[in-house]
Amino acid sequence: MTDVAAMGQTTKDGARFNQGNRLVGLLSRAGLLLAILAVILYGSISNPVFFTAGNFVNVLTSMSIVGIVVVGMTFVLVVGGMADLSVPATIACGAILCLALQAYIGPVPAFAVAVLLAGVTGLVNGVLVGYVGINPIIATLGMGTIVLGIVQAAVGGVIVYGADPSSADFVKSRIFGVPMIAIIFIAIAIIGNFVLSRTFWGRWTIATGGNYSAAEASAVPVRAVRAGAFVITAFAAGISGGLLGLTLQSARPLVGQGYEFSAITAVVVGGVSIMGGFGSIPRAMAGLVFVQLLTNVMVLQGVRTPIQGFVLGLLIAGAVALDIALRKRGVA
């Protein structure tokens, strides 16, 4: 009987109840940071180039383009929208229009129009997924194919070159040694984090992903929230594509290929649940940093590309398995 009484008490103040879970929870939070440190440590020991300012700036720059997409993709996963596969098309849309329109309307309006049109793609995705109820994978795959087709037809399937070198200079400029493109990425990540973790829209996003019916029955505009995640991702991909185009000063229709999987990998490795309802921008960013550093180390060490793909594949499988295991234990 004393046993039972003691049990009731510890359950009440929560101390004992949390202890077991706290360890697992801590592991799920700090595990990734430890992994990042391990990669940095290994990279520094194994390769003289790794731990240099030059290399870090390179990593940061290449991270920025995919990182902006990651911010949007986090919303898609958290809302329970699985993935946005139209990202390569929206990136291409951003990159090609941003360069192609420069000669006619100037670099800044060109950038704005490119991003806006990418956003329209997201709006169609959002309506298809949120309001019509089409499976997100199918809807975004279809939309991506259509948009890519339109973009290709518009530029005649050739490479588009920039007309205004000063715009490239702006993107490549540095503030205190940090590339402008990285600053834009970090600003977008901070805004994304604010929206997801602090605003009512972010809370609605998490609630809709956590339990769609319950959110709906709590007067959350679930359809709009679901659609919104795809609009956000399309805008992010449009910006990302525009910056990519400006950096390269050339763009082909397949310029965005592979970014969707890089973004999904980062988000999933960061521990954002593929089933929705759980995740944050900082987590996704940690996943991004880890994946990018790991890739960088592998490249520097001369690991062959197929093996790199193999390692990243294992990472995704491992992260998803962990997500499911944590969910079963009620931590995530």
Binding site: N211, S213, A214, A215
Partner: peptide, 13 residues
């Protein structure tokens, strides 16, 4: 709602 787990709570919140 009737189905508390299904339509009522968002369990992870």
């Amino acid at each position: 709602p009737e189905d508390r787990k299904g339509d009522g709570i968002v369990p992870a919140m």
